[in-house]
Design a protein around this nucleic acid. Structure first.
Lengths: 222, 222
DNA sequence: CGACCATTTGATATGGATCAAGCGATGTGG
DNA sequence: CCACATCGCTTGATCCATATCAAATGGTCG
């Protein structure tokens, strides 16, 4: 289920001169860059974690599907983010692109070998997993809140991760957001229009969200 | 609306230099054992993570309290479990005992020094964080489910962690379970009696739960 | 232009929260 | 040793946030 999948070459990439996670330098050297189309699987849950990945452009989601078909999205990964790094040797989630994406693919065994010799690299691996843990813990804290609070929390999170821009560009659909927040698309939509009516945000298009009153959103983020 | 969680200052009942314990790691050698009473804080959220801990006996919960007083329990730690190990240098949650407990307290700096020299130790640290990550991810998967599924999932989890015994001994109150599952005590109680009526479990006492029909519970765990 | 898909909006249903009361076990002071 | 208070838990009645079902709108691409 690996990367035989990449499709067309689309726009010439302007490589994001991504601010680093120190793991960068060694990793950049060990990986090769691949291009994936939209909604393309990168790996599946339970597969051996032979590679780890870094988003260069686009966006990636990880998810699980329950027996009855409900899908839970574990995280969204944006340019600069590392995903697919497992402490065990199987992928805990499936991963697929949200939009056309370029991804740096790095052989896990190479990184592990390096880490065994270089305690600095080992510590960086640990740090990446630690960040992932924090993300999951924050996710737990989101999921116990009301719909308003979840959506507000999501917006604040996305705003934080998007570089300075006052308008958030959403790579993902309402369904993706719903599956991340444990809500339905209808609730996402209604909550956003409610925020718009209360002037906390503006919605130039359905995928662009301008934060007008961050304090109001943060206040919901109790 | 909340549990009036009594905040107490740390009051270790005794401190002993650690004599014994298994080959689990050199960690056992570096710690000292402490005894805590019930509902006693071990560390607070945001405090520098100077120590990490291993439960010897009893039970520990980690949690956060939101601005409005809602408490979310991040995890329960039972004998053998390590907690308080952070990849960063602050505790992300607060920790307190659920019941009288003995805890092995290990100086973080000592472990870190060792890890810097011994890649095996470094990998163990990483593995512990990886397990914690998995636990948090499982928690996320629980929180999107129905009340029945959450309670069933909790019971199955506790059954798995408790050594062989057919009857689960719960260290924690209904309020603790509720705050772990993002439900109310009333819902926990009602759901348990419902399971009892449907013969999936028996409730000899409120803190003892016998699993009668694991398949029925697992089925809910869709 | 027309078909398709994502999103919004509306009407109704429902699972779990909330409010409230009762009950059993445990502990305390008289 | 009992009477009473307290605490944790259960049970009942009602309410409300969000899901569900349904339809309209809008945007994109052939």
């Amino acid at each position: 289920m690996l990367h035989q999948t990449q499709i067309q070459t689309r726009k010439p990439l302007s490589i994001n001169p991504t601010p680093k996670q120190n793991l960068d330098s060694p990793l950049e050297m060990m990986g090769s860059q691949m291009r994936f189309g939209r909604n393309v699987e990168i790996y599946g849950e339970g597969e051996p974690a032979e590679y780890l990945y870094k988003v260069v452009s686009g966006a990636v989601r990880t998810y699980k599907v329950l027996a009855d078909g409900r899908r839970q999205i574990g995280a969204f990964y944006l340019p600069g983010d590392i995903f697919g790094l497992e402490a065990g040797d199987e992928h805990a989630f499936s991963a697929e692109t949200v939009s056309d994406s370029q991804v740096l693919v790095i052989k896990r065994s190479a990184v592990m070998d390096l880490a065994a010799r270089d305690s600095g690299v080992a510590q960086q691996l640990w740090t990446v997993t630690g960040r992932e843990l924090q993300r999951a813990q924050d996710h737990v804290m989101l999921l116990i809140k009301s719909a308003q609070e979840r959506v507000a929390g999501f917006l604040v999170e996305m705003a934080k991760r998007a570089p300075g821009a006052s308008t958030i560009q959403l790579a993902m659909s309402r369904q993706d957001i719903a599956d991340y927040l444990g809500l339905t698309i209808e609730t996402i939509s209604r909550t956003l229009t409610q925020f718009e009516k209360s002037a906390a945000i503006a919605l130039p298009t359905s995928r662009q969200i301008e934060i007008r009153n961050r304090a109001a959103l943060a206040r919901l983020n109790s």
